[in-house]
Design a protein around this nucleic acid. Structure first.
Lengths: 346, 346
DNA sequence: TTGAAAGCGCTAACAC
DNA sequence: GTGTTAGCGCTTTCAA
């Protein structure tokens, strides 16, 4: 046969109508089909190695077995892990996953989301946070409405101002935990390198840090960078200008790597002179030197949970709480140690 | 309006036929449409914020504006970079990209490719190499035939036994270059940690290494690992058992990181005692300590080239050579230095 | 339990 | 330059 077999070929071979063939082949059709007929149809389909045409089916059912995941940067291990978890979970359920990496350019992200709208994907997972900026917010809300309008679902894996169903890591608790860990080691000038203030993830982690600092009777001190290794390395200079910290908490492991690199360049030893901690527990940290103390975020599980949530929404049985928080865990390695200096009295 | 606007809504508003509306809105239609008419149609479409339904269009044109990229592991920086380059290039041309990460399990990869076949994506890019194993090869060839059958294109970004159009990094030249670099530093016991023998990328890099060794009158010595950090770290033991190398060339940066980690654990200094070099130049290496000497593979460009190639094939104007080789470049950093020992005479 | 027929929304012959 | 018409391959009323 020159062309690929279509349903009518199967029907003809099985000597049944198109309708019956369709019903016999659809595993979750509730319409009754006699066993004899079904067997004949299945046999014919197998013989012809028939595969339903997904475009035709999608046109009819108004649903494509494809979801999308929007990330800030696929090359960032944090997002790469989430993507890994999400694509694997989706494929198990028969869904393909489109990956959109904005490379941290809001306009690019918006363009991607527009493409996703037009392609009518079943759902969109936003792995990164959104900008807190009128134009962005407005445009994004428009797209979200349009996705909802055609029956698509949306899930967020990072805190956002849009009120979408979300699966989030416990950023505050995690930041509190590392900070308390540092305090317990005798540190008293603990600085934080955070990400852009426009990202809620930054703010949540700052909040947890500030809270723990206050509880310990210490003064918070925050410097901002941009979630990249290089940006964090540069921020170290500003950080040292703000007094000499005994410990540095970076809002992400990627940034912590930049801090480590810069401190080494400056000849400052970690952890004997300064302790450094990160957040996320991206893969490979145990092979670094010094191995980074951090907070483990279940990235792959988060991606998988996002997919599960999306599919539940699509099936209309997502009656659970709107925001699901995933617990995080302190992972102590070599980059944090007892403070060299002693906290002055008072 | 309750439902999304469709082409006939636009046609009615613009007071033209469905056909004319379709033609007026199609930017690359060669059918003539008067400017006045086109303006009216475009105005109507804008007013209704009309978006063509991709499923209907796909059903008709038998083509989805979606491609796929199959990788061994999205979390591996090498593949992550390729994916970044590919998705960006695809989106510029209006294509969405499905990412399939097999997590180095051949069966998973095969399942993905089957899904891709059924979904009739326009093309598939294989970023990783294939297994040299009868069942895998046979099944994959079947899928490839079926993709070709419905008019889809295929491109490989790693050497494979299947004869597909390919965009490849110059693995041999790169391996030769690092090896020569090591030789020029006075090293004479240069060991290589390679990947699985079933992957052609391993073999090509081994070939370049062996060639340069022979030219220098040195004996090649290869130990195998599995392209992961942990695997390479374990391989170091076997490597040291094979005599004490003055330099180690790892077939990928990821593995080089494992070597570095293990040597540090063993208290062997790099580069004063042993030099280490990698391959790929994954991002962030300049922030490591010691910064890794490696061979730069233009990963993102490779991804973009793959997309360009795929699209050219789809347009039927890929008359170029079947395999396009991309040049690589030696990047000398801190992990390689002059050999401590001197080559014995003879 | 089966089948006929009507689309899903679009594009592409083919006429005018 | 424009319109009529016939599908693309499938699902799903509705009727038997």
């Amino acid at each position: 046969m020159r062309r690929l077999p279509i349903l009518s070929d199967v029907a003809r071979q099985a000597e049944v109508s198109l309708t019956t063939a369709s019903r016999a082949l659809d595993p979750d059709s509730d319409h009754p089909v006699s066993e004899r007929t079904r067997a004949r149809v299945v046999a014919a389909a197998t013989r012809l190695s028939y595969r339903p045409n997904p475009m035709a089916r999608a046109l009819r059912t108004r649903r494509v077995p494809t979801i999308a995941i929007v990330v800030h940067d696929v090359s960032d291990p944090y997002f790469a892990e989430i993507v890994r978890g999400a694509t694997a979970a989706a494929s198990v359920r028969g869904f393909l996953t489109v990956v959109c990496s904005s490379d941290r350019v809001p306009a690019t992200e918006l363009r991607y989301v527009e493409m996703l709208c037009e392609s009518r994907v079943s759902g969109v997972i936003f792995a990164g946070g959104g900008l807190e900026e009128p134009h962005y917010h407005h445009t994004m809300s428009g797209y979200a409405r349009s996705i909802a309008h055609y029956g698509g679902a949306i899930v967020a894996l990072a805190p956002r101002s849009e009120r979408w169903p979300a699966e989030l890591p416990d950023n505050r608790a995690g930041a509190r935990m590392v900070t308390e860990h540092l305090v317990s080691l005798g540190h008293f000038r603990i600085a934080m390198i955070s990400g852009p203030a426009t990202l809620r993830t930054s703010r949540e982690r700052e909040f947890g840090y500030a809270q723990a600092m206050k509880t310990a009777g210490l003064e918070p001190s925050i410097v901002r960078a941009d979630f990249t290794v290089g940006g964090a390395a540069q921020a170290v200079t500003r950080l040292l200008a703000n007094g000499s910290p005994t410990a540095v908490f970076a809002a992400t492991d990627t940034m912590a790597l930049g801090v480590l690199s810069e401190l080494r360049r400056l000849g400052i030893d970690v952890p004997t002179e300064v302790s450094v901690a990160g957040f996320d527990d991206i893969p490979g940290l145990e092979f670094m030197h010094p191995a980074l103390t951090t907070v483990r975020v279940p990235m792959a599980e988060l991606g998988a949970a996002g997919v599960a949530r999306l599919l539940r929404q699509l099936d209309g049985d997502d009656t659970a709480t709107r925001t699901q928080i995933h617990p995080v865990e302190l992972v102590v390695r070599e980059s944090t140690g007892r403070a060299a200096a002693v906290r002055p009295a008072g």
